[in-house]
Design a protein around this nucleic acid. Sequence first.
DNA 1: CTAAGTATGTACGGAAATCTAACATACCGA
DNA 2: TCGGTATGTTAGATTTCCGTACATACTTAG
Lengths: 407, 407
Amino acid sequence: MRPPSKTPPPGQPTRRQPTVLMTAVKAGRVNQGRVLQALHDLGPLSRAELARLSGVSRATIGSIVQPLLEGGLLAEGEPQRGATPGGKPARPLWFAPDSPPLAAVHLVPGWVQAALVSADGKILANAGGPFRAAAPAATVVDCVVDRLNAVLAGSAARALGVGIAVGGIVESTSGTILACNLMPELSGLPLGPLVSERVGLPVHLDLHPRAQAMGDRWSGPGRGEQSFASIYIGEAIGAGLFLNGAIHCGPDGAGGEIGHTIVDIRGRTCRCGQRGCWETIATRDWLREEAARLRLPTAHAMTTALLAGLSAAGNADAKELFERYARNLALGVVNLQQLLAPNLFILHGDVIAGGEALRGRVERQARSHLPTRSAAEPQITFGAAHNRATLLGAAGLVLSHSFPLVG
Amino acid sequence: MRPPSKTPPPGQPTRRQPTVLMTAVKAGRVNQGRVLQALHDLGPLSRAELARLSGVSRATIGSIVQPLLEGGLLAEGEPQRGATPGGKPARPLWFAPDSPPLAAVHLVPGWVQAALVSADGKILANAGGPFRAAAPAATVVDCVVDRLNAVLAGSAARALGVGIAVGGIVESTSGTILACNLMPELSGLPLGPLVSERVGLPVHLDLHPRAQAMGDRWSGPGRGEQSFASIYIGEAIGAGLFLNGAIHCGPDGAGGEIGHTIVDIRGRTCRCGQRGCWETIATRDWLREEAARLRLPTAHAMTTALLAGLSAAGNADAKELFERYARNLALGVVNLQQLLAPNLFILHGDVIAGGEALRGRVERQARSHLPTRSAAEPQITFGAAHNRATLLGAAGLVLSHSFPLVG
DNA sequence: CTAAGTATGTACGGAAATCTAACATACCGA
DNA sequence: TCGGTATGTTAGATTTCCGTACATACTTAG
């Protein structure tokens, strides 16, 4: 084969990111990030434990964590007396209570929620407020900045940065909102740079389901996991995919539109124009329509919690619908598992109210629709309450950008 | 939030890989790998061009490529006289014609194909041979080793290693075939270590679609791309996903079973036991059944090539079926694009015979089923002939393991 | 109470990689 | 013949991790 031509094939936006090489200082930051992640995954660990875990010498760990201790992000715990039969007691390392906090913003149509989060995932302060649904972009920026300042004012230590989770299509590298169906005024808004300039902190913008997945990874059921899928099921459906230790992000922030993958090609038409999208059979809207069709009580206000109650009370129609809804939910899980095999699925949103009854049903349905393999069966879990996971994830964005895990 | 407990939650095989840190020597190998990839992506480049491309100094590039030149993998080309108006002419670097070659094996039921591949993707030698479909594992190993020795004998230089692509479920880390529907005798066979011991070379084993994707990346339509999907459509359907610069691989080599993602939940039953798998409407079997239903000529031997011909000749039924098949093929593409947005889809297998007529139809169908975005429209491409892409990919496995792109 | 034993954390020199700056090389053109 | 320009190389500085030895702190045996 002859060498390829240097001009990209026509019509194809080559989109090649420049080759980036490894450096000693980059390696140092990566190692800091990996030590931090190991701590977060496994809990407080002494230098010696970290050294054994990573196969390097205690001296190396010492030099890696030294700047983190000096920077105030980590702190030494009390010596663990009596933990070992003999020898110097270990001093566990953990995130300092007074460490520089992380600011988080969750932007949804009509509402801005801001929070201050400690490095170990405690929410220190909280401030939310509405804005007019059709407000101009400048107003929304003002609102975000105001809420941010409100939470930032409560902290003596200067925050490390700001993470913003937003529903819509986002280009995270430039911090720009490319499109947002429910807030069209924000299309094309470089929210990241604007907020960064106003509050004087680095800002990291990302899509809501991806931030949610980051929250699950950082302090939710995904903690310590190498791969999982975090799925939000509400008025719409979206997924954040954490694959092989990193959030997956397509070009221009695309991907994760699992709600519009087609599972029932001869099914009903979706608002996106296609037929048989997963969204058409897995959202609360579907549930309410079916409940109405079955003339279930309070069908127009049906929730998974109500349905679980009806089902448990012995209502046969409710029972059948509950099972059918679980199967519909399992469909998306099954397809994801076949394709990417994340093995762990963290569900958020309306479905959480369905409780263990729904979780178990979805898990059983998913497993019954998958071939048995030697590997572990896929697990279904419910995430933390919606806003909490997303805010923690937005905060996690800051940390993961400050300490990259891969050079 | 309190620190997490150190014991993993019960019932969950924690599967946490030990924290691995960056090292100077690791950084060196990673940088070698990235320089090699840049060369392969962009063609012959001088040290100065590489330095500009990666933002490091020429001196650094010099020290990175020095051992590669000494090892014989790379070689300096003739000085490019007259390329620049003034100044010392650049000496482009490229893979040496006499570089250590790579051995590749493609193992399919009843047939072993081996090849010797040069570092720049030329197939230097080729040897294939059958084995009894139900042969015991030892016989298959013998057959693989024989074919390997046949191609290795033709090269003066010692090969860098062996890559083996095999249909079935594979644990690539240990080189073991976990399961193989069509060759049940091979289940549990540690083929990698066995072959490695016999031929005295490092062996890397992986799943056929993943190897195919590697071949597309290394010297096919995926060259230089950051993300794409390589889909094989034959008697079965499988996908290799190249995401963000790396082949995606689930735990235990799972994932990529795109053929058994459900797209038509009320459709026909698949041999896997589920209903409406993509395989039930996108393989040649479906095409032949539908052709028979329409009483098309040579329906029992229908191929995409024949169908394209009938359609072009004006047969209305053929035309409709052709379009429908294209739509069915597009379905899988659409779902992948929504979920992962790879933007580039490289199709292999039976569909290639359908030519541009089929490719264009699939691309149009896929685009019409996707929302228009500011980003590039998804592109459909056909890969190289089946065996060639897989063999090149198997060879690419060796290189990508010898020069990892990430620490 | 003292000394041996053990494990943790730290200090110092060495190895390996990249970075900066300067230098030698090779070609063009006036 | 000489200046200009770009390439490739050399040498010292810097940063990081690694290996070894050492100081520290606690338990336990005598």
